[in-house]
């Protein structure tokens, strides 16, 4: 049974009815097939209406949807010979960030990203995509390796944020994130980042200071979660909806602000209703970006990336 979000309740009811009717279908009554088709058309219409005007808070919920494709779904479909490389060489291997070598549509690449996990056991194993310093240090190591072997870096961002824990602080969470951003900005190979779900604050930008930043249509990217922002500025997490509006965390607004370069459309009803289609669309967008960046040499890739980030804050929403 798929997970329905709160605002999808009417959809859930319709799909429930369809399901019931399908069970009756064996009786051979032709009217049932007609009724199913009629309901299905209704579902599609409702989906289209709902998803055409998702509020920022609804997008936040969609971006966090448990059935949304995650890092390993992308590497599974887009990367051949994916060879994860473990460890930061000084403390541990962090499962919240996965990275490794692989082949993307014929060319060798370094793929790095947050993995949230798709069932309870995996979510615990990957710490819900919240990385510790060793995760960011592994990312640095892999970006430097990519730089050395002239391989483009693909970064898939999907994290609620960096892990807030005593151990993470003790090992220098702040320094690890800072150094990871610095590494993104230093390397002389193409860096294409994609926000595929949640782009949560410092934990996200640690991997996302790229030449091109792509973003899925219903993903969100923000300096703080709407709940966190609400509890500080409204003094109550209840106001998360208002905070989500105010933060301008949708792909549409971020494109206007020049923070992202391209919005990658999601299938009707969001990525969780069409993983294969979503992954394919992101793959196409990445390929286009790599094609454009392929014209530049190492020095100009680095320079252009830095110039782009120096401009951040020059554009505003009218």
């Amino acid at each position: 049974m798929p997970t329905f979000l709160d605002f999808e309740k009417p959809l859930a009811e319709l799909e429930g009815k369809i399901e019931e009717l399908r069970h009756l279908e064996n009786s051979g009554d032709i009217n049932i097939a007609e009724e199913v088709a009629r309901l299905q058309a209704k579902v599609d219409k409702l989906l289209r209406q709902t998803y055409a005007k998702l509020s920022p808070w609804q997008k936040t919920l969609v971006a966090r949807h448990p059935e949304r494709p995650h890092f390993l779904d992308y590497t599974g479909r887009l990367i051949e010979d994916f060879t994860p490389l473990a460890g930061d060489r000084s403390f541990a291997d962090d499962h919240a960030i996965i990275g490794g070598l692989g082949r993307f549509r014929g060319r060798s690449v370094m793929v790095i990203g947050h993995e949230k996990g798709s069932d309870t056991a995996a979510r615990v194993q990957h710490n819900f995509g919240m990385a510790r310093p060793e995760g960011y240090r592994k990312a640095q190591r892999l970006m430097d390796m990519a730089d050395r072997f002239r391989l483009p870096v693909l970064a898939l961002v999907d994290t609620p944020g960096a892990y807030p824990g005593v151990d993470a602080e003790a090992r220098g969470q702040a320094e690890a994130i800072a150094r990871s951003i610095e590494t993104c900005l230093r390397i002389r190979v193409p860096l294409v980042a994609a926000i595929i779900g949640e782009g949560g604050s410092g934990g996200a930008i640690a991997l996302a200071a790229g030449n091109r930043v792509l973003m899925l249509e219903h993903a969100v990217y923000s300096v703080i979660s709407p709940e966190g922002c609400a509890s500080i500025l409204w003094r109550s997490a209840e106001q998360a909806k208002e905070a989500a509006e105010a933060l301008k965390l949708t792909a549409e607004d971020l494109l206007k602000l020049g923070v992202i370069d391209e919005i990658v459309p999601e299938p009707l009803g969001g990525a969780h209703r069409g993983a294969a289609e979503t992954i394919q669309a992101l793959g196409d967008a990445i390929e286009r970006s790599l094609g454009q960046l392929g014209q530049e040499n190492g020095d100009s890739l680095r320079r252009l990336r830095r110039e782009k980030f120096l401009e951040m804050g020059k554009r505003s929403l009218g």
Binding site: A204, V223, L233, L310
Partner: peptide, 15 residues
């Protein structure tokens, strides 16, 4: 926070 994503972008910028 009141500058939202723009404030986050000051991290790479300051670096």
């Amino acid at each position: 926070m009141q500058e939202g994503i723009i404030s986050l972008m000051q991290m790479p910028r300051s670096i």
